[in-house]
C-alpha cells in the first residue's frame, strides 16, 4: 500500500504520441459542440434576467438589453404569500435529498461490494435481476407500488420517496462496475492482516472508488431534488420545493418572468453539487495509488 504514486493528471504534460493536427481538430470540435450544448442554458438564464417587456419583444433576443433581477424578487414575493411557508418546502426537499442520497450510497455500495468481489451462491443471479429491473417502465409499477406503500403505512410521508430511492437499481449497477476493477490481491492482503469485511469495504474499497460514488451522489441528488412526489404525498406541508415552484410556474402568461426565474432556481442545486463533485473526481485518481 505504500506505492502511492503522485503523477500530475495527464493533461498538463503532452503525451508523446499525439499529432498536432489531431489535437487541433479535437479542440475545434469540442468548442463547437460546447457552444451548441450551452446555448439553451444560456437562453434559460438570460430569459430569467429579462424584464417582462423584453420577454415578449419581437423579434426575440438572446441576451437581455437591460438585465434585471426583478423576476427573482417577484418570485420571492409570490412564495412569501404562499399558505405553507417557503422554508417548509425547502426543508422537506433538503431532508429528502440528503437522507435519500446518503442511504442510497451506503446500501448500494455495500451490496455492490460483495457482488463485485465475492463469488457466493445467488450473487450473479441477484445482479442480473437488478440490471434487468432497470429496464422495466416506472409508470406501470407506480400503482402496485402505491398499494405496497399504503400497506406499509408510508403514504404521505417522506419515506415513500426515500425508501425506494435507497434501493434504486442504477446505483448498485454503477458501483459494482467500478468495484470490479479493484485487484483482488488488495482485498486478500487486507484479509491476511486480519481486517474484517466491513473494514475492508470502508477503509480500502470505498476510497478507491471515490469517483464512482461522487458520480452516484450527482445522480441521486439530481433525482431526489427534482422529485415532485405528487402521487405519494398529499399534505401541502410535506410537499417538495420543486412542486411548489412548478405551481408558480403554471400560473400562466402573467408569470412568464417568474417562470423563467423558477427554471434557473431549480437548476442551481444540482449544478452546484455537480461542480463540487466533479472537481473532487478529477482530484482523487491522481493520488489513489491503485496498483495491481
Amino acid at each position: 500500500m505504500s506505492a502511492i504514486k503522485k503523477k500530475g493528471v495527464s493533461g498538463l504534460r503532452r503525451r508523446p504520441n499525439r499529432s498536432v493536427m489531431g489535437d487541433a481538430g479535437v479542440w475545434l470540435l469540442l468548442i463547437l459542440v460546447a457552444v451548441m450544448m450551452a446555448f439553451p442554458l444560456v437562453f434559460a438564464v438570460s430569459s430569467a434576467l429579462k424584464p417582462l417587456d423584453e420577454l415578449f419583444r419581437f423579434p426575440p433576443t438572446v441576451f437581455p438589453r437591460h438585465p434585471t433581477l426583478d423576476n427573482f424578487s417577484d418570485l420571492m414575493v409570490t412564495m412569501g404569500q404562499s399558505w405553507v411557508p417557503f422554508s417548509r418546502y425547502l426543508t422537506n426537499t433538503v431532508g429528502m435529498t440528503l437522507l435519500g442520497t446518503m442511504g442510497h450510497l451506503l446500501i448500494a455500495s455495500m451490496a455492490a461490494f460483495v457482488l463485485a468481489k465475492y463469488d457466493f451462491p445467488g450473487g450473479r443471479t441477484y445482479f442480473a435481476v437488478v440490471v434487468t429491473a432497470l429496464m422495466f417502465n416506472g409508470y406501470v409499477t407506480a400503482i402496485p407500488n402505491y398499494v405496497t406503500m399504503s400497506r406499509l403505512h408510508i403514504i404521505d410521508t417522506a419515506w415513500s420517496v426515500i425508501l425506494p430511492a435507497f434501493s434504486a437499481p442504477m446505483g448498485l449497477f454503477l458501483m459494482k462496475q467500478f468495484m470490479e476493477s479493484i485487484p483482488m490481491s488488495l482485498i486478500e492482503s487486507a484479509k491476511l492482516d486480519g481486517a474484517k469485511e466491513f473494514r475492508i469495504f470502508w477503509t480500502i474499497v470505498m476510497p478507491i472508488v471515490k469517483p464512482a460514488w461522487l458520480t452516484l451522489i450527482i445522480f441521486s441528488v439530481q433525482g431526489l431534488w427534482n422529485n415532485r412526489a405528487s402521487a405519494v404525498i398529499y399534505s401541502e406541508s410535506k410537499k417538495t420545493l420543486v412542486y411548489a415552484l412548478q405551481q408558480i410556474q403554471a400560473g400562466g402568461i402573467a408569470r412568464t418572468g417568474q417562470a423563467a426565474a423558477v427554471t434557473v432556481v431549480v437548476m442551481i442545486v444540482p449544478i452546484v453539487t455537480f461542480i463540487l463533485s466533479q472537481s473532487q473526481i478529477l482530484e482523487t485518481m491522481a493520488t489513489s495509488g491503485l496498483k495491481d
Partner: peptide, 26 residues
Amino acid sequence: MKVCYLFLLPHAVLFLTFYILPMFSS
C-alpha cells in the same frame, strides 16, 4: 459466506419490496 448476505440484505429487502414485487404484479 454468510457475511456476503448480510451486506446484501438491506438492498435486497428494499429492492424486492419496491422494484421486484411491483414488477411482477404489473
